[in-house]
Design a protein around this nucleic acid. Sequence first.
DNA 1: GCTCTACTAGAGCGATCACTCTAGCGAGGG
DNA 2: CCCTCGCTAGAGTGATCGCTCTAGTAGAGC
Lengths: 230, 230
Amino acid sequence: MSESRQRDTRQRIVIATAELFRRQGYNGTSVKQVTAAAAAPFGSLYHFFPGGKEDLGDAVVRSSGQAYLELFEVIYDAADGPAAAISDFFDGAAEVLVETGYLDACPIGTVALEVASTNDRLRRATADVFDSWIAAAGTRLERAGVDAAAAHELALTLVAAVEGGFMLSRAAQSPEPMRAAGRSMRRLVEDALVLSPRRDRPVRSRAARAREAPQPVREGGDLRRSRQRP
Amino acid sequence: MSESRQRDTRQRIVIATAELFRRQGYNGTSVKQVTAAAAAPFGSLYHFFPGGKEDLGDAVVRSSGQAYLELFEVIYDAADGPAAAISDFFDGAAEVLVETGYLDACPIGTVALEVASTNDRLRRATADVFDSWIAAAGTRLERAGVDAAAAHELALTLVAAVEGGFMLSRAAQSPEPMRAAGRSMRRLVEDALVLSPRRDRPVRSRAARAREAPQPVREGGDLRRSRQRP
DNA sequence: GCTCTACTAGAGCGATCACTCTAGCGAGGG
DNA sequence: CCCTCGCTAGAGTGATCGCTCTAGTAGAGC
């Protein structure tokens, strides 16, 4: 039972810290605030994270990053093709922003900018997280038939647009920037699919292909929706 | 002479603070650090900014935002059409990042995320700045023939992509995310121009049209460059 | 030359920062 | 039954935070 108790408190601290980081960043969050929010004894924080705030920050960035990656994968794989997946993801992010009063945004973004030039360990943690997101998106685009270089470039753009969308939407307290970015990204994805040199992908199982591209080929004519707000 | 002396110190404080904000954000920058960097007496800071750090932050955000707006306008108006302008802007940002060791990024972005949920006055300052950027980009796209709704959506996306590009490039310490975002944005702009319903804009002077769109009409065929890295 | 105002200059304030240290609790193994 | 050890618990550390306050300087206007 001691192991589960350990896990409980440690996990409670990480979750509470993640929420605080999302709202007020790394420098804006004090360790006292963390222990209060997690209902954890102050001493426990330094028991589980002997390196102090930096240890905690590293753990929080990586675990939040992993959770967000899984959220992306779930949404993507449940959607009706890559373009719809991107729409769903951005619209979902916009919805969460509205519902939480623009509090629950990306758990990494604020920290990433804060530490980029001041803390190399945490900077690397955020870079690793971003890389995992970019790889996940890039791999899926490749599976859908986009060639590797284009897929990587598009994946970079998608992640950048998500982060920028969070920034603008939180600042303006409006879901519109996130939604606009989502519509633009959908268009980019659609174009990349149309332009992809071959739609028969090489060494992929039929099942995987069917799962990921239920509407694999569309003609160019109706690809770009005429109205901006579907 | 007293007025110019005043301007000197005040301006020195604002400039030094802007640089510190870019690198370490709002919460990560102390007022002692500011006065040291500006070589300004500590008392002077509270003479010019009676409201303290928040007053200073508001002034810095707005003045940095204005400076960056002007930089965008200069680059845009000097470029060979909207698509080239966007390329130039993103490539320039990437170049500055590399040259400064990923220190000199957006002076607003970090602060915007830090204060979005914790300081409404500063949040509004960052929102105003973003709005001014979006308006500048949107107006120019409209002038180039993109209809109002599409131009606004594209402008939102451009700003989001710039901010996201800064975030990813600083985290990865690589110009590639910013450059990739720039190439994607160029493609979006080119598509928007091709899709724009009318290329004869309504009540615009001939001189303005000539200045902003020296290569106004391009056919769709060669619009999308075949290689990813020009 | 005197005054008045704008600015310089920095010591010092209470609050809060990240963190340390000691003391004790409670469950599992002997 | 008691010992051990993972964990709880929080008072206390020096350092630093944003900020206030008083004293002093320099130049413009009379």
